[in-house]
């Protein structure tokens, strides 16, 4: 049972576990914050005196800035910890760091880590509400929420209407993508049909058992068969590891699985309002053609703006639940 106005879970570990009501509440709240972000004075006192710890164990300037701005616009104090794994090699473990930060009693903890499951480790030693800002290959819930927000906005729908009737195609390295995992949960929860496409070695085993998605290893079939696609979400290819592990070169990947001009033209031929999304940062010319990325169909910059409002909603609702002792489980 969801108490109206508050999430059913104490933390945002992922999209997994969220109810449709939770998702609607998060997106509705984010809409209110979009209004705040259009004001001249873009700040509200809701979290005045609360401490938000930003624990970024992986380089991610964009997500960290987005969360930091979100916290500041809610008048919270922020405590920023960044490391790129180097302090771990100096002997300090994740739990050591967590214990140090916990001593400052943060009300909210935002964590980004290159290891799947890191937020669960923190949950055991920290008392604040935890927001997962991306863990390994596992989940990146705020990215999925802002993707959903962008899709709703572009189709002029309210969060409660959901995304029924929409078809979204996610293309790339699904296996190593936390953005894909969160979207494969959230978009179907909101009623959208989701297709995923990528080279077979980038499609993890058991996809269909876990997610309500259609799976393709041929990107052209995914994009141009069945119902017309409303949005194409291109995932970033980790140039260093993934592309080479699967393909001989970046060009091979672009030809086989990238969103080239030709490929996108075929998508537009079936639906001239189709959108292009990308969680960024982009490899222009690899997974996405530069012209396609800059076309009016691209919502990539808009996604960045919506991100702050979504993260404000996450922080605000977690603080609300935390202050009222929302417990875990399906209570």
């Amino acid at each position: 049972m969801t108490t109206k106005g508050v999430l059913s879970l104490p933390h945002l570990m992922g999209i997994e576990g969220l109810t449709r009501d939770d998702a609607t509440l998060l997106l509705d709240t984010a809409r209110s914050f979009i209004e705040v972000n259009t004001r001249q004075l873009k700040k509200v006192p809701a979290l005045r005196g609360r401490l938000v710890a930003l624990m970024f164990f992986e380089n991610s300037t964009r997500t960290r800035l987005s969360f930091e701005l979100a916290a500041k616009r809610l008048s919270a104090d922020t405590l920023s910890f960044s490391s790129s794994g180097s302090s771990v090699s100096k002997g300090e473990t994740l739990l050591d760091t967590a214990a140090n930060i916990e001593a400052m009693k943060p009300d909210l903890v935002v964590v980004r880590h290159e290891a799947s499951g890191a937020p669960w480790m923190l949950e055991r030693v920290m008392s604040g509400a935890i927001a997962n800002a991306g863990d390994g290959n596992h989940e990146h819930p705020t990215q999925a929420l802002l993707d959903a927000m962008t899709l709703l906005h572009r189709s002029q729908r309210q969060p409660k209407d959901g995304l029924a009737g929409k078809t979204v195609c996610i293309v790339g390295d699904i296996s190593r993508s936390r953005v894909a995992r969160s979207n494969m949960l959230l978009l179907p929860l909101l009623g959208a049909k989701v297709r995923v496409a990528g080279p077979a070695t980038m499609l993890p085993a058991g996809l269909r058992d876990v997610y309500d998605v259609e799976v393709f290893d041929d990107v052209d079939e995914a994009l141009c068969s069945g119902a017309p696609v409303d949005a194409v979400m291109m995932l970033r290819i980790q140039k260093e590891r993934a592309a080479r592990a699967v393909m001989g070169s970046d060009d091979d990947y672009a030809v086989g699985y990238g969103l080239t001009k030709d490929r996108f033209a075929r998508v537009l031929a079936r639906n001239d309002a189709a959108l292009v999304m990308h969680p960024g940062p982009m490899n222009r010319g690899v997974e996405i053609d530069a012209e396609v990325a800059d076309s009016p169909h691209s919502v990539i910059l808009e996604q960045t703006e919506t991100g702050v409002a979504v993260r404000m909603a996450v922080l605000y609702l977690l603080a609300l639940g935390h202050s009222r002792g929302v417990e875990g489980g399906a209570a």
Binding site: S116, R181, G206, L207
Partner: peptide, 15 residues
């Protein structure tokens, strides 16, 4: 092990 559990949890898996 590669499969639904590993995929859901985003864990590195072997076939």
């Amino acid at each position: 092990v590669e499969g639904a559990v590993a995929t859901r949890l985003g864990l590195p898996a072997l076939p």
